[in-house]
C-alpha cells in the first residue's frame, strides 16, 4: 500500500537528516581555530535537530541524533559514534524539556539552545569517560561550557532567522 502522508513525512525527514549531516561535514573541514578549546565546534547541525524537535517532536529529534551518530561512526570511527550518540541523545531530551519552558515564555531560543549545547557537551564527556575510564575528561567541561554558550547563542539566533524558510518547506 502506498501511503502518501507517510511518504511525504519520510521524504521531509530525509531532507532534514541530509541537511544536518552536510552541516556537520562542513564543520569538520573547517581548520581548528587558535584560542578555542581543541575539538570545539559550533554545532551548526543542532539548528536542524532543534527544528526537528520543535516541529516533529521527540521521536524525530532522537532519530536524527541516532542516525547522525551512526554516520559519525562510519566516517570517524567507533569512539566518534559513542561520543556523538551520548551527546546527541542527552541534548535531545534536554531540548524537549527546555521547549516545555520556552512555551511557558520562561526561556527564549538562545536559552534553549545554550542549555542543550551544555548538555550535549556533558553527554559527550560522559561518552569519553566510558571510552577512557578516566574521570579527568570532565576537567575539559568549563572551557567547553564557555564556548558552548557562544555557540548556543549563535545557533539559537540562526534558527530564529531560518525558521520561517524551513517552515515553508516542511
Amino acid at each position: 500500500m502506498f501511503n502518501n502522508k507517510y511518504s511525504i513525512k519520510t521524504a521531509k525527514f530525509g531532507m532534514l537528516l541530509a541537511l544536518s549531516l552536510s552541516l556537520s561535514f562542513l564543520e569538520s573541514i573547517l581548520p581548528p581555530v587558535p584560542f578555542l578549546p581543541p575539538g570545539a565546534k559550533l554545532g551548526l547541525s543542532n539548528i536542524v535537530t532543534m527544528f526537528a524537535v520543535i516541529n516533529g517532536g521527540l521521536p524525530s529529534g532522537l532519530l536524527i541524533a541516532v542516525l547522525k551518530s551512526v554516520f559519525a561512526g562510519f566516517t570517524r570511527g567507533f569512539s566518534a559514534f559513542i561520543i556523538s550518540l551520548c551527546g546527541g541523545v542527552l541534548s535531545i531530551f534536554t531540548l524537549r524539556l527546555m521547549l516545555f519552558f520556552k512555551d511557558r515564555k520562561l526561556f527564549g531560543l538562545a536559552g534553549v539552545s545554550v542549555i542543550s549545547a551544555v548538555f550535549h557537551n556533558i553527554g559527550q564527556l560522559a561518552g569519553a569517560f566510558v571510552l577512557t575510564g578516566s574521570i579527568y575528561v570532565f576537567g575539559y567541561l568549563p572551557s567547553l561550557i564557555l564556548f558552548g554558550i557562544i555557540a548556543g547563542v549563535i545557533t539559537g539566533a540562526v534558527l530564529k532567522a531560518v525558521m520561517p524558510a524551513l517552515e515553508k518547506i516542511m
Binding site: K105, L106, G108, A110, I149
Partner: peptide, 22 residues
C-alpha cells in the same frame, strides 16, 4: 519566538561565572 528572555540572561551569566570559577 524571542531569542532572549529574562531567564536566558540569568542562566547564561551563572554558567559563565561557574565555569570561570572552575
Amino acid at each position: 519566538d524571542k531569542i532572549f528572555r529574562k531567564c536566558d540572561a540569568l542562566i547564561i551569566i551563572s554558567l559563565i561565572l561557574l565555569s570561570m570559577l572552575a
